[in-house]
């Protein structure tokens, strides 16, 4: 059993505290919406309830990922990439002649995560942006179907970067070397960035609902307002500062990193929204079946994971 579970939470108070906070917040939110629903059955709570549900899924996934043997965590995060990749490419309308190249893109997922697992940083960081970037177009070319080849080449590489390269930074956090005087290690960092990203979503949403007036980009996200954006960034930065014990960062570094997580979370959210909008519009107002699963849950993480990783890597390692 000890090989599978790493129940050393009780010796690592930092992790235990954060897990308790996360679960507490989720239980609080779930109960709150349930009670509001009973008191005022007309309240429009569908969206809030759906969001809470997806936070439960995310939180349980990552708490379990930090609890179990790290090998299983790598596989779990790789699976997240796999599902996200599958979902996004299925929406994009690739040509039938693209199947061989897509096959190799799928093959690149376990390779990328294996590189993260063995901690070979040099290969991890160039595998998708350099090697796959050069190889995939060649696979398209071998098929010889030139009509629409630019779109296929560009979209496939871009989907790989978003869903595999970006998310795999979460896995590499677990491979970072141990630092003296920093006991929670990669698991602490993983918990920190996922929790802060989700908190940022919640905060932007809450501030927007409470005080939102001036829209930022109405064409893409009609619900996003300046009030929500600024309120969200400020609260996320403050919360990140107080959760700093999960990271090896100090003082101003912590403020900077939390601030950047907040900003990039917002950007990831709206970038993914714009994609969904394009796909929705393209088919004359109809969405393609199969849409709306994991992508809604990891839209911000796609941006926060690499930004957070490289900032921490630069500042502390």
């Amino acid at each position: 059993m000890e090989e599978i579970f790493r129940a050393d939470y009780f010796h690592k108070n930092e992790l235990l505290i954060v897990v308790a906070i996360i679960l507490g917040l989720l239980i609080f939110a779930t109960l709150l919406f349930a009670i509001i629903g009973i008191i005022n059955p007309k309240a429009k709570l569908q969206e809030l309830k759906a969001r809470t549900k997806s936070w439960w899924v995310m939180a349980s996934m990552f708490i379990v990922a930090t609890l179990v043997n790290p090998k299983i965590s790598y596989i779990a995060i790789a699976f997240l990439s796999f599902v996200a990749f599958r979902e996004l490419y299925s929406l994009m309308g690739f040509r039938e002649s693209d199947r061989k190249a897509i096959f190799w893109a799928f093959i690149s997922i376990p390779i990328q995560y294996y590189l993260a697992f063995i901690g070979w940083y040099g290969a991890f960081i160039i595998f998708i942006p350099v090697i796959m970037f050069l190889f995939l177009p060649f696979r398209f070319v071998l098929k010889g179907e030139t009509k629409g080849i630019i779109k296929s080449m560009a979209s496939l590489q871009w989907i790989l970067l978003l869903t595999v390269f970006g998310i795999s930074h979460l896995a590499y956090l677990l491979s970072l070397p141990e630092l003296p005087n920093f006991s929670s290690g990669g698991r602490g960092l993983l918990l920190f960035v996922v929790f802060l990203t989700e908190i940022n979503d919640v905060m932007q949403f809450t501030w927007g609902k409470l005080f939102g007036k001036h829209k930022i980009i109405p064409k893409i996200s009609p619900n996003k307002t300046w009030e929500g954006f600024i309120g969200g960034i400020l609260s996320t930065t403050v919360i990140g500062y107080f959760l700093g014990f999960l990271t090896p960062l100090k003082g101003y570094e912590l403020v900077l990193v939390s601030f950047m997580v907040a900003i990039s979370g917002f950007i990831g959210d709206v970038v993914m929204s714009s994609i969904k909008r394009d796909i929705g519009v393209k088919d004359s107002g109809n969405l393609i079946p199969g849409h709306g699963g994991i992508l809604d849950r990891i839209d911000s993480l796609v941006y926060t994971a690499p930004v957070f990783f490289h900032l921490v890597y630069y500042l502390a390692y």
């Binding site: 796999f82 599958r86 979902e87 299925s90 929406l91 199947r99 897509i102 096959f103 799928f106 079946p289 199969g290 849409h291 699963g293």
Partner: peptide
């Protein structure tokens, strides 16, 4: 001959 994962319904 190859099954590629594809979000289906």
């Amino acid at each position: 001959g190859i099954i590629l994962p594809f979000t289906s319904t």
